[in-house]
Nucleic acid binder design. Sequence first.
DNA 1: ACGGAGATCTTCT
DNA 2: GAAGATCTCCGTT
Length: 187
Amino acid sequence: MPDVARDLLGKHLIHVIDGQRIGGMVVEAEAYGGWDDLGSHGHGRVTPRNQVMYGPTGMSYVYFIYGNYWMFNVVAKPPDVDYAGAVLIRALEPLEGDSVMAANRSQRPRRKWTNGPAKLAMALGIGKSLNQHDLIDPKSPLFFEEGTLIPDEHVETGPRIGLESVPEPWRSIPWRFWIEGNEFVSR
DNA sequence: ACGGAGATCTTCT
DNA sequence: GAAGATCTCCGTT
């Protein structure tokens, strides 16, 4: 699963709205596991919200949090196993549909369009209606394309963000991956 | 530039 | 009933 997060770096995420392509390159991603990962929505029981995390790899998992924000994930788990997993896309580098993203981000500076998980969802117009879609199928409204291969020497890793109240070792496990020096990484 | 607090509501216990 | 995979605003440095 962490391997999927790392491999998503450099891929292009594209959302097509009325024939208009909006998207960017993945520059930061985090892996989340199943029942034993206390930092993941996949821990504990199957619920209406997390059930998609138990499904096939490559589906979207979009959830709402903090009363205002949408988070976009890719389901990623070992095949043929009853175990949940997902990868949170934390940041993109804008590539297509600049005018739409600028409008969606209230004319903020380009650097702040997609440098955070909720920000990129706002910029690309990702919400509840895009939950549980096939992200591998180019006919989907939201999908991944091949992008730039990122060599290992340009990949950095560290603990996941926002899990301050989660017990060790889950709080510190280095399942956050980002492209070294990229200005759109969230922090 | 940095830090702290409020916003706001869905989901699960 | 409480917490949450966050962002923005407003204060101070």
